[in-house]
Design a protein around this nucleic acid. Structure first.
Lengths: 109, 109
DNA sequence: AATCTATATAATAGAATGCTTATGTAATAT
DNA sequence: ATATTACATAAGCATTCTATTATATAGATT
């Protein structure tokens, strides 16, 4: 793991949608439809963002029936960064709660 | 400071050149020509990367004679992140030393 | 004053990014 | 078996990013 690997992680996290996803998954397991609902974004767009996060190994998927549930992979070598990052910016917490409540009950699953 | 501000920081750090600059400045004050030398990159390219870092407020410039010396601004609200990030990835340290020694004596100042 | 020197800015071209629409796929339900 | 549902992938397009070359600027030197 060198500087350019590290830059790659930051690049992936350096997008509002993906960082919001991470912050949400830091609180609970999420479904793809949670994200489309929260962000008002098409399903393929969400899927493409998730692919980048999964490629990093930071996010893992669990399939159950129709739905795919996404969560942070605690085994990931990057996992420890996440709580540190989130807690470094206290205001994020409230914003994430707002996002999560926005998709509560409205999403498909 | 919200999620999208935070994503903006990551985006700026999510580039090998800029992250290397940050890691180098975390060790010592650097001159523009140090960077052009280290990275084998044109002076305007370096200048544009530095502009992004200065716009964040993370890097400050000190002019002395011909040269402009750049360093991390300890007053920056983002400053505390840097040592945390760098020290989270131990391998970076050796790589930065290598970069710094590469431009030693060869750069213009 | 005229000339260097280090750096900044402008203009521009090519690559990368992120969205949309269209389509494929795998599991469930009828 | 067929249809439905959630999700993935592909293709296309507009925007953004990052480099280069050319030019401007500000301080030092002659």
């Amino acid at each position: 793991m060198n500087i350019s690997d590290t830059a790659e992680i930051f690049k992936v996290l350096g997008d509002t949608t993906r960082l919001s996803m991470i912050a949400m998954m830091n609180k609970k397991e999420c479904c793809v439809c949670d994200f489309t609902e929260c962000f008002g974004m098409s399903q393929p767009a969400v899927s493409q963002h998730l692919k980048k996060l999964r490629n990093l190994g930071l996010v893992k998927a669990r399939k159950d029936g129709y739905w795919t549930y996404l969560s942070l992979d605690k085994e990931s070598k990057y996992y420890d960064m996440i709580p540190a990052l989130i807690s470094a910016i206290p205001e994020i917490d409230a914003q994430v709660d707002q996002l999560l409540s926005a998709c509560e009950g409205e999403s498909c699953c």
